[in-house]
Design a protein around this nucleic acid. Sequence first.
DNA 1: ACTGAAAAGCAGTAGGG
DNA 2: CCCTACTGCTTTTCAGT
Lengths: 156, 156
Amino acid sequence: MTESLDVTDWAILTEVQRDGRIPFTELARRVNLSASATKERVRRLEEAEVITGYRAEVNPERTGYPVMAVVRLKYPGPGTRHQPLRRLLEERAEILECLRTTGDDCYVMKVAATSMAHLEEIVDELAEFGSTTTNLVLSRTLPLRGPGVPRVNTVR
Amino acid sequence: MTESLDVTDWAILTEVQRDGRIPFTELARRVNLSASATKERVRRLEEAEVITGYRAEVNPERTGYPVMAVVRLKYPGPGTRHQPLRRLLEERAEILECLRTTGDDCYVMKVAATSMAHLEEIVDELAEFGSTTTNLVLSRTLPLRGPGVPRVNTVR
DNA sequence: ACTGAAAAGCAGTAGGG
DNA sequence: CCCTACTGCTTTTCAGT
């Protein structure tokens, strides 16, 4: 599951997590390699699914979604009927992230809404599956963060 | 706070959230504009902080962080001593995201760890601030998601 | 606000150590 | 696994509409 990542790979990962649009020539300079060697490493990282994609980060507050909430969902019974929830996740792009967890709550979700009424609508849909707990998000660390180099580094 | 985004802006946002490294020439074709007009629009979206950056998405499981958890933190008193927590967030890149919320728990965090022992270490550090609730993440929707076009669209 | 064209810079590939 | 060199595209800028 875990790949062998050397110091150069981690340097690449650090840079592309910070700036996903960095040109290979500039990235190559930063990691002290030629452009083609850098490109090959990035290709391998993508192939190994270490890098799973590149995304522009869009601020929900500036795009008409001023309300953010954490909604936790508790299934009542031994629910193997998780399929309808999957479908809701597909349809509702407002559910930005959904984590299935251990513990009392089966799912923890991060939801963006255009208004409190809109949030209520989404929570109502989720409440059809089980009992929900909703907390509004007051502020957040802008997630320009990802995994960093582990303290005990893997040596190739 | 919210900018006026027309249909073309949303088309751009949709594309760059899906592929953050899409060339302007290709993006221009998709939104039926010239490359330079597209670039100008993207520049404005960046300037208005609608687009806050571009990130490579790195899979924690493939980079030596197989353990993920949601940690909720409850402050005991009327804590205005949130500053030490801020510092911990800076230092600990393993805390991928931290949301300050309403409700019983002040903070909800998403944490990546190299092992259960490592997670314990982080939780211990957080427990110095208040009482914590930790839930392991079993699975998650890969967050290739972001805000989409609201149903009631803003017209410029 | 958009287009089109030109210069500079970058990506992708081949050949070789 | 790395390098250099070459070719064709992409980015960036700017004059014109």
